[in-house]
Amino acid sequence: MTVAVSILPEQQLAVLNAAYGQAVARRRWRLLLGAVIFAAALVLAAVGAEVNLRTLFTYFGNFLSYFDRIFTLDNGQRVWTDVGEWLWGWRKWLRMLGETLLISYVGTLIGATLAFALNFFAAENTSPSSWLRFVVRRLLEFARTVPGIVFALIFVIAFGLGPMAGVLAIAIHSTGALGKLFSEIVENADMKPVEGIRSTGASWLSCMRFAIVPQVTAGYASYALLRFEINVREASVMGFVGAGGIGQELVVAIRKFYYSDVSAILLTIIVTVFIIDISTGWLRGRLFGKEARS
């Protein structure tokens, strides 16, 4: 069998190699420099975050045995040998999960409504005036950047302990996130219908209602459903600060070392999140066809 690869003479090869080396050297240096800077940042961060590898090695066994313990009942058996005992509080937990879902549902709906009301002012192509756009955009940015749980902490003090604070926190955070996404959809909308309607002498409000809204509702609903998914996760931890939902039960179980309860509550949360993910994915597929699913 003949070898198809031709081997170049030594001199020619040296020239080519040198050219290649030169071309690559610059990139390699830059990569090396980047790696060094990154490593330095990591070391600095490790000092800042009090990383202690010895602690990790000493206690890593604890992490694994933690999972061993949360899957063990009080009588020393594995949890799945006695499901009734493991999920003893299922009535209460299901009620709290229902509350969690309601918190995220109401929060998402209020947030989506507010975002719907605000996004036309934030979009480049439909905003009536530029200062209004600036104000609304900064407002949405603020609502989006401050984490939901910080709002919850403050609202718990203002509105009292309970799910109301959680709902409002989720609503505000969703307003910020959805407002931005919604206004991006509006910016991509076709402006010809708007011109058509404006040419009939319609007001700004009618332009929005009859030219923009019909184009964007599918996108809005898709993003709102996606946000609902995210909010279910978020609502599951609102209870940590006293803002309602299953988080309350979970934090008590973790802090008081009720091991098998921790795994049971985590299981119910994970299953719920799965179900919500799958069903909203299905719903989005049903409502808006395949292209809106991604």
């Binding site: 009090e50 992490f63 973790i254």
Partner: peptide, 12 residues
């Protein structure tokens, strides 16, 4: 919360 149970309170 889980890691706090394992390595204690703090940034780690």
């Amino acid at each position: 919360l889980v890691w706090i149970n394992v390595v204690g309170l703090g940034p780690f």
